[in-house]
Amino acid sequence: MKSVNKDLDDDILLQLLVDVKADDTKAIGKLCDHFLPKVYRFIYYRVKKIEDAEDLTSEVCLRVLQSIQEQKGSFHAWIYRIASNMITDHYRRRAVRSTVKSIGDSIEEIDDHSNTAIELLEQQELRQNLSQLTEEQQQVIVLKFIEGYKTDEIADVIGKSTVAVRAIQFRALTTMRTMFNEEGQRRNEGKN
């Protein structure tokens, strides 16, 4: 199993935040360096277009910088909450929030030179399946299996109990398993 994304030590993160709040641009750079890819991955699996993922990531970084002085409590929870709100606003702006299900039918081809075609297909398949889950289920799956957070940390981010997170995780995986099975069946029928 691939190791999940490692996080900064709490002490290092705390010091970094103190430096960022004191307008230390190098610290801002370090913070961006660490969180920008995480935020991007979090958004990537939950929006329709890759350009939207990049734009929203940029917006989240700006929002973080603008309101860093007001940040309290868990930084991870705070930054992912900002990202979640941005995604919600994004769908609200485009008036497609009520038809999130249809996103799966029109996931765009991703023009990313860094990945091979097979990798892209797998990423797309996951995006497509994820887009058919509820918002909470998507958050839990991405935070747990893409970002490697623990259940209690995810509970902190989405503001639910650990029992609730486990239930969401179980339902999400069961739904995805069904979807993967159905896709497998369709592929087999296509071959035959």
Binding site: M1, K2, V4, N5, I28, C32, L36, P37, Y40, R41, Y44, A53, E54, T57, S58, C61, L62, L65, I110, D112, H113, S114, N115, E119, E122, Q123, L126, F145, I146
Partner: peptide, 20 residues
């Protein structure tokens, strides 16, 4: 978890940094 992880393009990173 075995899936390759997506990464933002260099252009997107530059654009974000310019905005920052």
């Amino acid at each position: 978890e075995a899936l390759p992880q997506p990464a933002p393009s260099t252009e997107a990173i530059s654009s974000t940094l310019i905005n920052i």
